[in-house]
Computed example of a mutant assay.
Amino acid sequence: MVERMIIDCDPGHDDALAIILAAGNPNIDLMAITTVAGNQTIEKVTRNALSVCAIAGITDVPVAQGAGVPLVRPQIVAPDIHGESGLDGPVLPEPQIELDPRRAVDLIIDLVMENEPGTINLVPTGPLTNVALAMKVEPRIVERVKRVILMGGSYTRGNSTPSAEFNILADPEAAQAVFAGAWPVTMVGLDQTHQATADADIVARIAAIDSPLSEFVVEILTFFGTTYKDVQGFDAPPVHDLCCVAKLVNPAVFATRDAFVGVELTGRWTTGMTVTDFDNLLDQEHNTQVATTLDKQLLWDMTINAISVLSKGSAA
C-alpha cells in the first residue's frame, strides 16, 4: 500500500535523510515538503530543503516555506548540532526548483482538503508550529488527516533541558495543540530515536554506493557525528527524523505503546516536557501511540536502498 505524506521539516541533517527515504521508497507518495524554523532560521532551513531536493533529484514535489517563529515564545535554534547553515558539512547544491507560492500552512490545508479523507499522513520532524496553525485556520483537517507521525518529545528524558526535547521545547504551545487534536498521533521520541544511530558500518555501506548523493549523505553523517560526539557524547549520531518516515514505509520498523501525552507549558524546570502516562495514573484517555523499540537493521536497509534508487535516477 502506498502512503501519501506531507513532511513538515527544518533541515537539519536528519531531516535530509527523512526526505531522501520518502522520495526514494515506492511505498511513499511524497505530496509536499513544508519548512518550519527550528534547527535554524526559516530562510536557512528552506534553502536546505531545496538543496536536498537538488542533490536527490526531487523535482516534482512542491516545497513551501512556513512559520519563521513559534506561536508565542522566543525562537531557539540549534547551531551547536546542525551548524550555522543548519546543514553544515557538505557543499550545498544550488536549488533547482522554485518555492511553491503558497505558505506552508495553506499548502498543507489544500492537500488535506483536496484529497479523500484518511489518505494524507502528516510527518512533522521539526517544531509543530505549521501543524498547529493549519489546525487553527482549517479545523476540518483534523478529521481528514490519516495520522500524524511526529519526531519530538520523550517519555524519560530531554536533550535541550533535562526534561524537554528540542522540537517540543521550541514551540510547546503548538505541540500541545497537536497532541490534543482528535486525530491519531504517533510520538517518535528520543527514547526510540537514540536507537537509530548511523554507526561506522552504516556509513561505509552508504559510501559504497559511490554516487554524488551517497557522498552528500556521508558528509552529512560525518558532520552530524562530530557534533553529537562533541556536544552529547554519542559515538555515532542518532538520525531521529528518519524513523518517522520509516514507519510509513514499513510499520514493523518500530513498536509502540498507547499512552496519554500532554505537554508541560508552565513548569519552571519542565516546560516542553512530554508528560507520558502509560498506566492511566492521570485518568486521561490515551491519545498517542508512543514509539518504543526500533528494528535498526530494517531502518537502515530501507534507507540505504532509497539512496541507491535515487542515485540511479540522478545518474540516468
Rank of each mutant, 00 (worst) to 15 (best):
M1N: 12
M5F: 06
M5I: 13
D10R: 07
D15R: 00
L17N: 10
I20Q: 02
A23E: 05
N25P: 05
N25H: 15
P26F: 05
M31W: 09
I42R: 04
I42T: 07
V45K: 02
A49D: 05
I55W: 08
G57T: 03
I58Y: 02
I58W: 00
V63D: 03
A64L: 04
A64P: 01
Q65D: 00
A67Y: 00
V69P: 00
V69Q: 12
L71R: 04
Q75D: 04
V77Q: 05
A78E: 10
P79W: 06
D80A: 14
G86D: 04
L87I: 05
D88S: 08
G89V: 07
V91Y: 09
L92M: 07
P93N: 07
I97W: 04
I97R: 02
E98V: 00
P101R: 13
P101I: 10
I108Y: 01
D110H: 04
V112S: 07
V112P: 02
P117T: 03
N121I: 00
T125N: 09
L128E: 09
T129L: 02
V131A: 03
V131Q: 11
A132V: 04
L133T: 01
V137K: 15
R140E: 15
K146Q: 08
I149D: 00
L150M: 13
M151C: 15
G152M: 07
S154A: 12
S154V: 08
Y155V: 03
T156E: 13
T156N: 12
R157P: 06
S160N: 14
A164Y: 05
E165G: 08
N167F: 06
L169M: 08
P172F: 06
P172L: 06
A175F: 10
Q176D: 13
G181A: 15
A182C: 10
A182I: 11
P184Q: 08
V188P: 01
V188E: 01
T197P: 00
A198L: 02
I202N: 12
A204S: 15
R205Q: 14
A207H: 04
A207I: 03
A207T: 06
A208I: 07
A208P: 04
S211M: 07
V217A: 08
F223D: 10
Y228R: 13
D235H: 10
H240R: 05
L242I: 08
C243A: 15
C244D: 03
V245S: 01
L248M: 09
P251N: 10
F254Q: 06
A255E: 15
D258W: 08
V263Y: 01
T266V: 14
T266M: 14
M273D: 00
T274V: 04
D277H: 09
D277A: 08
F278E: 00
D279H: 11
L281G: 10
L282V: 03
E285Y: 04
E285I: 12
V290S: 01
A291C: 11
A306N: 05
A316W: 11
